[in-house]
Design a protein around this nucleic acid. Structure first.
Lengths: 132, 132
DNA sequence: TAACACTATGTAATAATATAACATTTACAT
DNA sequence: ATGTAAATGTTATATTATTACATAGTGTTA
């Protein structure tokens, strides 16, 4: 376990918004939603997002340019992220599977590079959408 | 093996440029490089890129918004892509490892979703950079 | 060959995503 | 109280990507 981070004002406002959201949020949608709380500029949002990603409270879904709260309570720093993404409803869920992450970090360790992290995105239809 | 695609004029110009490049290329850098060949607008580039990705001739490196030619001659449609990315020199190399792709597609198949593809990006220091 | 569908192209405008540069303030350890 | 690192505020701008609309090429098949 890492030590608990204290979030700054802006970081907390933005984390709370993302954490409450049922779906990944985009930066400018976040901006729109926090303007009433005094966060007026894109850069304020991006700075908080960068920090929140760095400390593992949120993850960026690279293929969507969107952010979700970490679903895995024990993950304070994200060195190993995996998601499944529905191409129909755009639902994203975080995968937390010890075997998978062991397999992938072992793979990376044995590849010749000095491995620091990975990101994996699966695409397809989620349970709901595939039965439609 | 899939059937061989014939590339259109713009697709061929853009594929050749990416294929010759030693590093991933960004869309506007591609645009700059093909203007002398009559491709003047971003959309012309993005349309060709979309098609080339679709038929598996190139891949998009999502974390970098950049494109590289497929290194794997037998891969005509990219349902399973993996890369290692150097955080220092930004070198990107495609990983083509049958065991890895089997492991990941099996994982996806057993996850409950109707799996169609994945993308995996490893980050760290490449061989050259780690010894500096 | 004419009619059709499909794919690709050309062009202008604009939307969406992200960062640079600079000034100021806050948190907090010494 | 002082130094330092982190965070904030603000303006402007860079970068990445799409919408909308008009036109042209390619290949089938009637």
């Amino acid at each position: 376990m890492q030590k608990q981070q204290t979030l700054s004002r802006n970081q907390k406002i933005i984390f709370d918004l993302i954490d409450k959201s049922q779906e990944p949020m985009k930066a400018y949608s976040i901006l729109f939603n926090v303007q009433k709380k005094g966060i007026k500029a894109p850069l304020q949002v991006y700075r908080a997002l960068d920090k929140l990603v760095e400390i593992g409270k949120i993850h960026k879904i690279e293929s969507r340019n969107a952010f979700i709260a970490c679903q895995n309570s024990s993950c304070q720093i994200s060195k190993a992220t995996a998601f499944s993404i529905c191409e129909s409803c755009e639902n994203v869920s975080e995968i937390s599977n010890t075997k998978l992450s062991k397999y992938l970090s072992n793979f990376a360790e044995s590849s010749g590079m000095k491995y620091s992290k990975y990101n994996l995105e699966f695409f397809g239809l989620c349970k709901k959408c595939k039965s439609k």
